[in-house]
Design a protein around this nucleic acid. Sequence first.
DNA 1: CCACCTCCATACGGTTGCGTATGGTTTTAC
DNA 2: GTAAAACCATACGCAACCGTATGGAGGTGG
Lengths: 180, 180
Amino acid sequence: MGRLSAEDWARAALEALAEGGLAAVAVEPVAVRLGTTKGSFYWHFANRRSLIEAALALWEAGTEEIIAGLLEVPDPVLRMRTLLEFAFGDPVDAKVAFQLISAADDPLAAETARRVSARRLEFMGATLEEAGQPPGLARGRAVVGYGVYLGMAALHRVGAVDESIGDFMDLALSEMGLAD
Amino acid sequence: MGRLSAEDWARAALEALAEGGLAAVAVEPVAVRLGTTKGSFYWHFANRRSLIEAALALWEAGTEEIIAGLLEVPDPVLRMRTLLEFAFGDPVDAKVAFQLISAADDPLAAETARRVSARRLEFMGATLEEAGQPPGLARGRAVVGYGVYLGMAALHRVGAVDESIGDFMDLALSEMGLAD
DNA sequence: CCACCTCCATACGGTTGCGTATGGTTTTAC
DNA sequence: GTAAAACCATACGCAACCGTATGGAGGTGG
């Protein structure tokens, strides 16, 4: 593995967060995951808290990155479809979102989840408006669409639904009035 | 507080589960919550694991209880509306569902979440069928409706949406083709 | 080649939670 | 009223994890 950077630690922490929640973002277990020891960690970070912050920042940056890429897509309907492909194609994102919402007793986790969710809802709403939907309806459908995304990911995660990812996407599109 | 029963412990454990996840179902913290000590706990339970089992069983029993009550309502549309009133009126249930889904690395938590979710989806689907909807559509709408329920609870929990509970209910009803 | 800086391993003390042991207090049974 | 049962408090050993201290390996400039 060679020498490690702070970002290596942040990535590993984000993985741990997705799998085991905030409690799994623990120094020694993540060190094991990286094949190293605490000695390395406390060189790059002051404490466990700053590792959590780094992991959350990494996750939030991912959302901004995706949105920036989607802004290159001119057609709003295609843009929304592409967004859903990204969303349902990434199994980690919904897990992290879930873990953070569940860990809402942690102020930073709650605030990060709120900010990222709000950003996504705003982007989805704007795209639906651009597709010709009136503002109020666009907002409502964005909330429902993102809610379905989170809820479906949840049900899929525990095996309560068997429907394929593709079915979810078509369903979400039709819920938003964008059915083809 | 007087003397405690095993069910008192299970209830307190369920509260802790809703607020802090599986990790919060810890013997000593729950003892503090009850104003007692471990000595009481290990009289009623063999270990921490059995406390978790009791809390999960309590949660699952709640679903069955509600469904049993709803079976008394003859009209399927009214039955669905009553169900949603129960669902959105109980702030604890969705929290627990979320926590268990997040804690899906624990086999018992995952299996319980799966079983309860499947039971609810089945009940909702059957009710929609009884309301005159074709089976496939009824199933799909049940999945979407329950998914929205979970997702909305999540977004509401972190403050990403401000819409009132009542709005959620009307929205869910209209999504299921039961709008008045 | 050597002084220094970067990065990591190991050892230590402190905290929190699990599970056991043991004794004490309150209720119940007769 | 007393013996047994039910219930609870305290103290202990054990394990996981946090954060610190300290020293050592490996590259780099002079």
